[in-house]
Amino acid sequence: MNETVLVVDDNPENRAVLIGLLKPYYRVLVAINGLQALEICTRSHPDLVLLDVMMPEMDGYEVCRRIKLQPQLEAIPVIFLTAKSQIEDEQMGFSVGAVDYIMKPISPPILLSRVETHIKLKQTREELSKQNEILELRVKERTHELEVMQDAIIVAMASLAETRDNETGNHIRRTQHYVRVLAQQLVSDGVYLDQLTPGFIDLLFKSAPLHDIGKVGIPDQVLLKPGKLTDDEFKVMKSHTIQGLKVLQEVEQAIDFESDFLKLANEIAYSHQEKWDGSGYPEGLKGEVIPLSARLMSVADVYDALISRRVYKPSFSHEQAVDMIRDGSGKHFDPVIVNAFVAIEGSFHDIAKKFHDDDILNQEEQACLKNCN
Rank of each mutant, 00 (worst) to 15 (best):
L245W: 00
V251H: 00
Y192T: 08
C368Q: 14
M237T: 00
K122A: 11
M1Y: 08
K140G: 03
N33I: 02
Q249R: 02
I242G: 03
V49P: 02
A367T: 14
V187E: 04
Y270E: 14
L22K: 04
E252D: 05
H349L: 08
Q184S: 05
M92I: 06
R295I: 07
K68V: 05
V28E: 04
T163I: 13
V299M: 06
P226I: 05
Y270T: 07
Y192E: 11
A83Y: 10
Q150Y: 06
E252R: 02
M1L: 09
I325K: 11
A183Q: 07
V251F: 03
S113A: 15
G199S: 13
V247F: 11
V78Y: 13
M1Q: 08
K130Q: 12
I242Q: 10
L245Y: 00
G284D: 03
F205Q: 08
V17A: 12
I19V: 15
K23G: 01
D10G: 04
S207Q: 01
R43G: 06
K246S: 09
D47T: 01
P226G: 07
C41H: 03
L160A: 06
Q253P: 00
I19R: 11
N373A: 09
V53H: 04
L210Q: 05
P314V: 06
V78N: 11
G330K: 04
H349R: 14
L73Y: 12
A254H: 01
Q72V: 15
N362E: 15
V191R: 10
K313Q: 10
D323W: 01
G190Y: 04
F261H: 01
I351K: 10
G214W: 01
L245H: 00
K225C: 01
E133T: 05
V289R: 10
M58G: 11
F94Q: 07
S159M: 13
M103S: 11
V299L: 10
V17D: 09
T197I: 13
P105Q: 02
N11C: 03
Q184I: 02
N2L: 07
M58F: 10
V115P: 01
E147T: 11
M58S: 08
I213T: 00
A152I: 03
G199N: 15
V342H: 00
G97N: 10
F94S: 08
I32Y: 12
E283Q: 11
Q86E: 13
V311S: 15
E90P: 00
I290G: 02
V187C: 06
R114E: 09
K130G: 06
T4W: 03
G346F: 01
L38Q: 07
A300R: 05
K263L: 11
